[in-house]
Design a protein around this nucleic acid. Structure first.
Length: 428
RNA sequence: GGAGAGAUACCCAAGUGGUUAAGGGGCUCCCCUGCUAAGGGAGUAGAUCGAGAAAUCGGUGCGAGGGUUCGAAUCCCUCUCUCUCCGCCA
């Protein structure tokens, strides 16, 4: 959501940005909203003048009554009554216009950063960095579920009975490894100076509406029956929601937050839960990072944030690459976004394990998050990034640390969380 | 789940239809003193939208949304949330 004042002052910039995103169908909206905005402001000026007069006449009526000038008061009442008829029409017009203006402003995309590569869709995303040597061992890497099953670490059949497709039981060392990764991620982030949070795992409808679009909500969120509560799809929902309609003191910025939560997703949509395994599932856990900062600092934080994820994966010997979303693939709210992808020696390609986004002031504007600055209030920039999301991350972990005999090497940083174990032994 | 109380500014809190939403704390500035503390004075309804080159002017705003009225923090309706007690409970 961009500032309508920016659009008013610089419509060509907004149009150019829409073209960069290949959303040509939205181009006419710019002129339409400028027109509507002018009409709206005219109506508002007129109505405000009327309201002002009504207020002062009403006050006079009060004084007349006090003095006992009953007849004059009656006359004034009539006058206001007539004004109210006109005012009602203007009010309706104002409401209608502002509603339509808001609808349009919600679909006009955020101004993307100059550095974003131009492209139509995800095929034109750009690899910007590759860290670690992608390695393919001379033995075959099995499908991740098979690796886990061989280690007696997963039970999907039981989960189907209790919960259906898209759920899983993790067991034994694999379950422990899952927790170890999250605990390690938590400490990793605390060491980077982030404040650790465990947020609410359910949030109210008004918060949901603040943090995502209606379409996203339909495709992602589970609603609790009979309550105004939804299961969160990511802790970002709780962590950003925490600041809805607040004004934060400037000297407290930046907020560097890292949060743990389970994440629940319906995954209704293009892919759904189509594949056996733990790649796309209804429930997973995630360590997330969120930053709220001054606008001029957001690009610096953006770069720092995705490098933290890269460092995290590298500390577990997993090769990664960073893919930047091109203009056409970038969600409308985002200024810039990259995906961190991990190497899969089985598929011999990289796959997505995390996503880092700079939302600029769009999210703050939408949610009413402001900063009390010395020269008045302003909108901060908000950013979010995945630290790690097992069990998806376990896929990359197991494939990259698997030995020929079926055992799994445990990288040094995790051993302390695995009771000192250096290896998960292959079973029977 | 049951019962009760409440929602007004950064905090506490007064305000039961009418001119400018009391008061206190805190905060900011000034004076006195000056190491601090105490004292005296002034300011402090945020936020947001509109008009204007600006000074400034105006609208909205007392949990939310409706209604009554010339006029609503105040009266009526609906809803939400918070707190206290009881019950249940990891």
């Amino acid at each position: 959501m961009i500032d309508i004042k920016l659009l008013r002052a610089n419509p060509d910039l907004v149009k150019e940005n829409i073209k960069k995103k290949f959303q040509f169908e939205k181009l006419p909206l710019v002129d339409e909203v400028i027109q509507l905005d002018q009409e709206y402001r005219n109506a508002k000026s007129k109505a405000d003048t009327l309201r002002s007069r009504r207020n002062s006449i009403s006050k006079e009526i009060g004084m007349m009554m006090a003095k006992g000038q009953k007849e004059q008061a009656e006359q004034a009442k009539k006058q206001v009554e007539e004004m109210n008829v006109e005012l009602e029409h203007l009010q309706e017009l104002e409401d209608k216009l502002s509603k339509r203006i808001n609808e349009i402003m919600l679909v006009i995309p955020n101004i993307i950063d100059e550095s974003v590569p131009i492209g139509k869709d995800d095929y034109e995303n750009v690899e910007i960095e590759r860290i670690g040597e992608p390695f393919v061992p001379d033995f075959e890497i099995p499908y991740h579920v098979d690796i886990m099953e061989r280690l007696k670490g997963i039970d999907i059949d039981s989960a189907r009975k209790t919960s259906g497709n898209g759920f899983y039981y993790l067991r034994g060392d694999i379950a422990r490894l899952h927790s170890a990764i999250l605990t390690y991620a938590r400490d990793f982030m605390i060491d980077k100076g982030f404040t650790y949070y465990i947020p609410p795992f359910m949030i109210r409808g008004n918060i949901v509406n603040g943090v995502m679009s209606f379409a996203e909500m339909q495709n992602m969120m589970y609603k609790i029956e009979g309550e105004d509560l939804y299961l969160i799809g990511t802790s970002e929902h709780s962590m950003i929601g925490k600041f809805v309609d607040t004004i934060v003191p400037e000297d407290e910025l930046p907020y560097k937050l890292t949060s743990y939560s389970p994440c629940f997703r319906k995954e209704v949509g293009a892919h759904g839960i189509e594949e056996r395994g733990v790649y796309r599932i209804h429930q997973f856990e995630k360590q997330e990072m969120v930053i709220i900062c001054k606008p001029e600092e957001s690009m610096r934080w953006f770069n720092e944030m995705y490098h933290i994820t890269v460092d995290f994966f590298r500390s577990l010997d997993i090769p990664v690459r960073v893919i930047e979303c091109c203009s056409g693939d970038l969600a409308d709210l985002k200024v810039k976004s990259v995906d961190v992808e991990a190497w899969s020696p089985r598929q011999k390609k990289y796959f997505e394990v995390g996503s880092c986004s700079n939302l600029g002031e769009a999210q703050a504007r939408r949610l009413g998050i402001r900063v009390k600055g010395k020269e008045g209030n302003y909108y901060p920039h908000t950013l979010n990034n995945t630290v790690v999301a097992p069990p998806r991350m376990l896929i990359a972990f197991l494939e990259n640390n698997l030995n020929a005999d079926g055992s799994v090497r445990i990288p040094k940083p995790l051993r302390v969380y695995m009771g000192g174990k250096e290896i998960i032994e292959a079973k029977g």
